[in-house]
């Protein structure tokens, strides 16, 4: 075991993993995290805490993870390279490990221009692939970037993200290979709606032999309304929402129920794809629906390892 985290045990044990996203509050209340943690605890194997997602200031991922950890939940600390230089990154990793955090997801982060402090200075000292490499080096060689020794163990399970449908698509699998070569243990993808396209992409992943080297968790976003479906189709880069899904949401009598149905159909197809080892549910502002989806998808009970 590299980290001994629950997520690692589930994936290495060959189970189909379920992770869920927890957005921290724009405030100081631990209760917001605790409520979400309590709600999702028995429905997933680990919970991602986002890191100032869309460049909007929120409670730090590290503290959100600690709150979950105290509840006996296995947190995945998301870390973007937008806001920290290599000194802060390594320092936060040492602190996170000391506080019992074992899973770290490496991202570049949405550009600061999107957030609520668009006049800030982005850091981008290292990129997300270099972050994966840095964490692997910290864990396996017990060394900082500068080459100096780290005292103590750095047990980490290292994650990276992948946006399969961002262009140029033919290069995406190669870039995934770079992340795997850098040391990623698991991958969480951007939300998948166009399963047929994703199946083709996974063929390319298997052709490169990447499915044997890394655990890929496919992203799932339950759609709450037709407006949300249209918004994602038109505005979120790297998300491909087929017209059929938009039409179904438009014609649905109860939009939320249709959204759940669509998510369940997608999950069912994802489970059948060779090389997909789990799903990552990002129910943005709709966390309450996650237990329903996990239960109806037949993914209960979650393994206790």
């Amino acid at each position: 075991m590299k980290s001994g985290s629950n997520l690692e045990k589930v994936l290495e044990g060959g189970y189909f993993a379920v992770t869920a996203e927890v957005g921290p509050p724009k405030g100081t209340s631990a209760k917001v995290i605790q409520r979400k943690g309590e709600l999702l605890k028995t429905y997933c194997d680990a919970m991602n805490v986002t890191d100032n997602q869309t460049a909007i200031v929120r409670m730090s991922s590290l503290s959100g993870c600690v709150i979950l950890k105290e509840m006996g939940i296995d947190p995945v600390m998301q870390m973007v390279v937008r806001d920290r230089n290599r000194i802060a990154i390594q320092s936060d990793i040492l602190g996170a490990v000391a506080l019992g955090i074992r899973n770290v997801l490496c991202l570049s982060g949405d550009h600061q221009r999107f957030g609520n402090h668009p006049t800030t200075k982005g850091v981008y000292d290292i990129d997300s692939i270099q972050l994966v490499q840095t964490l692997k080096n910290m864990r396996d060689e017990k060394k900082f970037i500068c080459g100096e020794e780290i005292s103590g163990e750095v047990p980490l399970y290292i994650g990276a993200v992948e946006t399969p449908f961002a262009d140029p698509i033919e290069y995406r699998v190669k870039r995934l290979a770079k992340k795997v070569n850098a040391g990623a243990d698991f991958i969480q993808t951007q939300a998948i709606f166009d399963v047929a396209k994703f199946i083709k992409w996974m063929e390319m992943v298997r052709d490169e032999g990447l499915d044997k080297q890394v655990h890929i968790l496919a992203g799932v976003i339950p759609i709450k309304s037709v407006g949300m479906a249209r918004y994602m189709k038109d505005n979120v880069s790297g998300i491909s929402v087929p017209d059929e899904i938009v039409t179904r949401m438009e014609e649905a009598k109860v939009a939320k129920e249709e959204g759940v149905k669509i998510a369940l159909e997608i999950i069912e197809q994802l489970e059948d794809i060779d090389g997909i080892h789990g799903i990552h549910i990002m129910a943005v502002a709709w966390e309450d629906i996650v237990p329903v989806i996990v239960e109806r998808a037949g993914l209960l009970p979650r393994p206790i390892l």
């Binding site: 570049s108 981008y124 961002a166 870039r175």
Partner: peptide, 16 residues
Amino acid sequence: CAKSLMNGPCGGTNNG
């Protein structure tokens, strides 16, 4: 590159 990435492109590329 808006993020000065050395190993790009990031997931934000959209039709080039």
